[in-house]
Design a protein around this nucleic acid. Structure first.
Ligand code: FES
Ligand code: FES
Lengths: 145, 145
DNA sequence: TTTTAATAAGACTTAAATATCTTTTTATCT
DNA sequence: AGATAAAAAGATATTTAAGTCTTATTAAAA
């Protein structure tokens, strides 16, 4: 469903939402250990998200990555679109050129129903709300926590 | 969701279900043009499915690929498992090591509900029934038909 | 002001998926 | 029997995704 890169991005963003703010930053190094991801690879993803304006960072000693309140007002779908683009939600599951109700493939309706719902869940919940839901229901971002 | 290889396999199998039987075979060459797939790549996939017992073939002049009645009694999930393995239905959407209700990720329940339903649809409908449904509802396997 | 610890940037490497090419085997038709 | 047309097999090539390494830049601490 999502590329490995995008899976890392989602888990990292949600971890930052739960554990950081303007006054509590975290280094890519520590984060990569917490979430068991390749260090440099994660760093590059976070840099891309910083450039795109979904993550905040500060350089130099005591620097690190974090989500500002403004960052936490965005939603996961935006982030997914930055990394994977919209194709994951729009392309035919069987690889047909068109994916629409006009010339549906044999599984279009099943898939499209799910994707529409999932997409709007991702879009309508802010990162902040996602983090709250995760904390309240004790959901997992990393097998060790 | 599925690998490109698996998408080709599904579309090819369904096409064979609709257009072939013991007395009507089709060459990989023609099939690749009908479905707009790379010829040799499709041939390899069909060979793998033949080896696995889901597709029938005959060599030599007037040979080709086809689905026997017995082949048409199988289901798509089996074919997907041969190509992609079960991972597509069993792995966590965020890449966590475990995917279960014990330590669910934030999107486990949404995803799992869909996957359970989709998987059982794929499993409970025979290839023969799938083909019938495609013909009756004029569903698409190839943008040109 | 020098050292240190962090992100930023970009080159490079590796691995996997996708695609192509070539040769062999087999059955049928002439 | 010889020519032909198909699948089978396997080697090779290309492309994309994933991961690593090195250097530059920046800001705080000592
Ligand atoms: S046409 Fe195949 S999923 Fe929409
Ligand atoms: S734990 Fe993530 S999809 Fe099941």
């Amino acid at each position: 469903m999502f590329s490995t890169t995008c899976q890392y991005a989602i888990r990292a963003i949600l971890y930052l939402a739960l554990n950081t703010d303007d006054n509590h930053k975290i280094g890519a190094d520590v984060l990569s250990e917490e979430l068991e991801m390749p260090k440099h690879f994660l760093a590059k993803i976070l840099q891309q998200l910083t450039k795109s304006g979904f993550v905040s960072s500060s350089k130099g000693r005591n620097g690190g990555f974090y989500l500002s309140d403004k960052d936490k007002a965005s939603n996961l779908l935006e982030i997914i679109y930055v990394i994977d683009g919209p194709s994951r939600f729009e392309n035919c599951i069987l690889g047909l050129k068109e994916c629409s109700g006009k010339t549906p493939c044999p599984y279009h309706s099943d898939v499209q129903t799910f994707r529409r719902d999932f997409k709007s869940k991702l879009q309508n919940e802010t990162i902040f709300e996602s983090a709250k839901r995760i904390a309240e229901n004790n959901l997992t971002l990393n097998i060790n926590h």
